[in-house]
């Protein structure tokens, strides 16, 4: 118990004193996971909506693949991205291995199927004739898609929360492609793993609490928006 108490005290200490390293790590975590979530939102909603609104051969297989992707193991993504951007890999020329960019790519790959799967389900859950109703009022295809996406904003916010929650808390891929370089690619999860490995439980607990607080604050904000939009 003493270990936990020490950890909590340390966390407050780090927070109250605005520890430069912790603030830097927290800010980088937010930047990387936020950017990855935004990317996944753009790609996931576009593909999810396209799949939901079109009938084609093999649609069920595609949906199954997307749903499987929602549980993509981060280490597998880490391995895949590492190999792709490895010096001799197909995108080695980009020279982004062990950089925040590589972490954003890996995290976006993890979050995209989550956002895609939820937005696909959200669009499919709209009344079947709504699409025709909007078109019959003179909407272009783009206008129709925009109306449907707007109409699915509640589940889409849930998709953002799920996507962000998935990437801010993942560690496997971030360590593999980011390298946990101090002051450059070290984020809350990778720092927590490192401090635990070194036996610095107090700092590890402190970082975990900050991570939890961060995840809570972001989700709290999104929940506020979501619930304000809910029909009463």
């Amino acid at each position: 118990m003493e270990l936990f108490a020490q950890g909590i005290i340390k966390a407050f200490e780090l927070l109250i004193t605005f520890d430069a390293e912790v603030l830097g790590i927290t800010w980088l975590s937010l930047k990387i996971s936020g950017t990855a979530t935004l990317m996944s939102l753009f790609i996931g909603v576009s593909i999810g909506t396209t799949v939901a609104l079109n009938d084609f051969i093999g649609k069920r297989v595609v949906i199954s693949i997307i749903n499987t992707g929602m549980g993509l193991p981060p280490v597998v993504v880490g391995l895949f991205v590492t190999m792709m951007i490895w010096r001799s890999g197909p995108f080695g020329f980009l020279e982004i291995l062990y950089t925040p960019y590589a972490m954003i790519i890996a995290q976006a790959i993890i979050a995209t199927p989550i956002v895609m799967g939820i937005s696909l389900a959200a669009i499919q859950n709209l009344p079947p004739n709504l699409r025709l109703q909007v078109l019959s009022l003179g909407a272009s295809r783009l206008q129709m898609v925009w109306v449907l996406v707007k109409e699915s904003r509640l589940p889409l916010l849930a998709a953002v929360m799920a996507g962000f929650g998935g990437v801010i808390s993942e560690v496997g891929a971030s360590i593999m492609v980011g390298g946990n370089i101090k002051g450059y690619s070290r984020v809350l999860t990778t720092a927590t793993v490192m401090e635990t490995g070194k036996g610095n439980f107090d700092i590890a607990i402190a970082l975990s609490i900050i991570l939890l607080l961060l995840a809570f604050l972001i989700n709290f904000m999104l929940t506020q928006i979501q619930q304000r939009q809910r029909p009463r």
Binding site: L130, Q133, S136, L137, Q143, E151
Partner: peptide
């Protein structure tokens, strides 16, 4: 589609105010 409007069995209203629902087709124009 610009000159014909369909009213379905279900009202199919958007999660918005009545005003914005009625304005929907006009905004497309």
């Amino acid at each position: 589609r610009q000159n014909a409007a369909v009213v379905f069995q279900e009202p199919l209203l958007l999660n918005d105010t009545v005003y914005k629902n009625v304005a929907l087709g006009l905004k497309f124009r």
